[in-house]
Design a protein around this nucleic acid. Sequence first.
DNA 1: TATTGTTATACTCTATAACTATA
DNA 2: TATAGTTATAGAGTATAACAATA
Lengths: 144, 144
Amino acid sequence: MERSPDPDLPELFLRTAKRIRRNQIERLGPLGLTPGQARALRVIARTGEPLRMSTLAEHLGIVPRSATTVVDALAAAGLVTRAPDPASRRATLVTPTEAGLATLAKMSDARRHAAEELFATLSTEERDTLRGLLAALNTTAPTA
Amino acid sequence: MERSPDPDLPELFLRTAKRIRRNQIERLGPLGLTPGQARALRVIARTGEPLRMSTLAEHLGIVPRSATTVVDALAAAGLVTRAPDPASRRATLVTPTEAGLATLAKMSDARRHAAEELFATLSTEERDTLRGLLAALNTTAPTA
DNA sequence: TATTGTTATACTCTATAACTATA
DNA sequence: TATAGTTATAGAGTATAACAATA
């Protein structure tokens, strides 16, 4: 990786994100999932309610067309099902299957384990500080 | 974006990284550069010395083949030149052109501006804390 | 006419594997 | 035979634009 002198905040973020993404690819490979699919599955199962495609896209921060690709993959793997929304037949509701929920359970262990590994150099207090700063950044900050 | 309750550190990182990347795409578009190309250009111009392809790849944290693609684009745009290394003709040295250095100068203004915008919700002290934590993460942490 | 999702297409970033030219 | 870089190919992630079905 780039070991430059005094890298700025964006650079540091992207570098860390790259490490996290590679770590995820390794962890998720055995489960047959890509990071994007795993994230979508988590969002879909989060509320316990069937989710509209458009809502999923919004929560993931992607355009609806991109959500279609992700859900296609999850459906092909038997982890979610699609059904028309009774309330409006042009909307599609996505629901996790039993297999999807089982996969999700396996994932969360792996996630915890990986986070430990990635942030091992920071103390518990430092991690809390970091989490707080990032949360502030992601809730208050403008879309830019 | 995903507004979940209590997201974990990896999730927060990837979310922030996505915001940064989109911001970069917007900023760099007018300059005709992608984020990856811009980063490579910065690394190439950093030392003032011609850089080997393999060294560039290492600094960017990518495999040599991927560096070829990035440098192809930079060379096509007239921002860098390739020349065989006199010390070993199978090695290639990459050097920024005048145009490359000029583009770099334009970029660094835009970068500063964008960073201000992205981290506007944090105080100066908070940014310093954040930078310190990220730096610790990126110098000490294992490759995983 | 406006909304929801999809088909079609394309581009960025990155990877592995095989080949070429050197050393 | 080992090294540096490239050609060939592939896959993940995302986007815009055009279109169908529904409202």
